[in-house]
Design a protein around this nucleic acid. Structure first.
Length: 425
DNA sequence: TCTGGGGTCCTAGGACCC
DNA sequence: TCTGGGGTCCTAGGACCC
């Protein structure tokens, strides 16, 4: 017997997934507490009423002290029924969800379900502020944290003091309380042997809940769930599974691994089998480098490549400038320049070109993206235009463009016209 | 009354090299 | 002349996630 095993028992792997509850909406309710308990949706552009509200809220004379936004009467807010435009909902408050409103739903459709719901525009700056704040708090308690966007993280509890107590519940409660005390926001936490199960567990007791899952709970807690609850099984994979009569994770687990490989390929099939059996050994990754940066925009109305060429050209140039300044601000350069188009029939086309040297220069990006554009047939009207820079490297760590040399952009072979290229710089 | 923006990863074919 | 592999990079599309 190794006595060390008794003094230092091997810790059991405990991974937490933390998900802020209705994050954007909750942040907005801190600014507008008078909306608490009402159906509110965040999404879409700025309504005229909202712009007026902000002007009032930011007026120094209106700031008698405290939060001037809190004194804006509820009647003054924009209602969903008055909204005009193409936006989708990013977050709905729990009262709004009672009406069947959910995220990713079009605002126009949501207006039918609940016309009197209050609409607020998104304010990413504000959400990022709160995001940094709650993540700092987590890091001060548990340093092994993986970012999953503004409102989600994975945390490795395994080596954290108290991380093993009650399967992780004690530490989860501490984190919840610390975040609430500092920000006034609630979150839900799942703790499990791995990321896959932790992610599912964090949904069990929403909002403001904690769920603990152990290996033994697989059959009782995981297998009854729909396959769709597995992070990585989306609408396509789910409907293919359903067509084979597989609806729950338990039914998926009952399938032979070879059968899944035969129907979904060696990689996806084997992964599905492992996931259904609750197996996942991915580590919590505390640092990662970006792979690409992009900017895209959906137009207020569909635009015609020829008739609206001036407008499109200006938008195209602006997107290139935005990506370039994003790259520069964050200290990256990229080598693969690409565009993305969405047509009025919602079909998507992408084109890209890889340069000989990395760049973060707006003009170079604009030139390369312009050549990509020439390779796309533009018969249909456009709904969206995007510009992407990939194959990123940290500025200074990529091979440098030789002194005096210029970026060479390959001309498109068999171009579909030179629609908006040329005269924009 | 349809359906945002910013990402990651995977697949598959072709070019090109050894 | 006709036949291989393997490896890497590039490109286009698509699924999925937050």
């Amino acid at each position: 017997m190794n006595s060390d095993n008794r003094t230092h028992p091997q810790p059991i792997r405990r991974i937490a997934h933390l998900d802020m509850d209705a994050f954007y909406a909750s942040v907005e309710l801190l600014r507008y507490p008078q909306l608490k308990g009402l159906p509110v949706v965040i999404g879409g552009g700025r309504s005229a009423v909202q712009a007026a509200l902000d002007a009032l809220a930011d007026d120094p004379e209106a700031q008698a002290g405290g939060n001037p936004r809190a004194h804006i009467p509820v009647e003054a807010f924009a209602r969903l029924k008055d909204y005009v435009g193409r936006g989708v909902i990013t977050t709905a408050t729990y009262p709004a969800r009672q009406f069947g409103i959910g995220s990713a739903m079009g605002l126009m459709k949501a207006a039918k379900l609940c016309p009197q719901a209050i609409q607020l525009p998104v304010d990413f700056e504000e959400y990022r502020r709160f995001s940094r704040q709650f993540k700092q708090i987590i890091l001060s308690i548990a340093p092994q944290m993986e970012n999953r966007g503004v409102d989600e993280v994975y945390i490795d509890f395994t080596e954290v003091p108290g991380g093993q107590r009650e399967g992780g519940r004690v530490l989860a409660r501490l984190i919840q309380k610390s975040i609430f005390d500092a920000t006034g926001l609630t979150c839900s936490i799942g703790v499990a042997p791995n990321k896959l199960l932790a992610k599912m567990a964090s949904e069990f007791n929403k909002p403001n809940g904690i769920a603990i899952v152990h290996d033994d709970d697989l059959q009782t807690m995981i297998w009854p769930l729909a396959c769709r609850k597995i992070n990585g099984i989306g609408p396509k994979a789910d409907s293919r599974l359903q067509s084979h009569g597989i609806h729950t994770i338990g039914e998926l687990a009952a399938k032979d691994e070879q059968w899944l490989i035969d129907h979904f390929g060696p990689s996806t099939g084997a992964w599905m089998h492992r996931a259904a059996w609750g197996r996942d050994d991915r580590p919590v990754v505390t640092e990662s480098e970006p792979v690409s940066m992009s900017r895209e925009t959906t137009f207020e109305r569909d635009l015609h490549a020829v008739r609206d060429r001036a407008e499109l050209g200006a938008i195209f140039t602006r997107l290139c400038q935005q990506v370039a300044s994003d790259l520069q601000r964050k200290g990256y350069v990229g080598k693969t320049i690409g565009i993305k188009l969405r047509f009025d029939d919602f079909k998507i086309a992408t084109r890209d070109q890889t340069l000989a040297w990395h760049t973060a220069d707006a003009k170079t990006i604009r030139d390369a993206a312009g050549q990509c554009l020439k390779r796309v047939p533009l018969q249909r009207r456009l709904r969206l235009l995007g510009v992407r820079v990939g194959s990123l490297a940290r500025e200074g760590e990529a091979p440098q463009l030789p002194a005096g040399a210029r970026h060479e952009v390959r001309e498109a072979a068999a171009p579909h016209g030179d629609i908006w290229t040329g005269q924009l710089f």
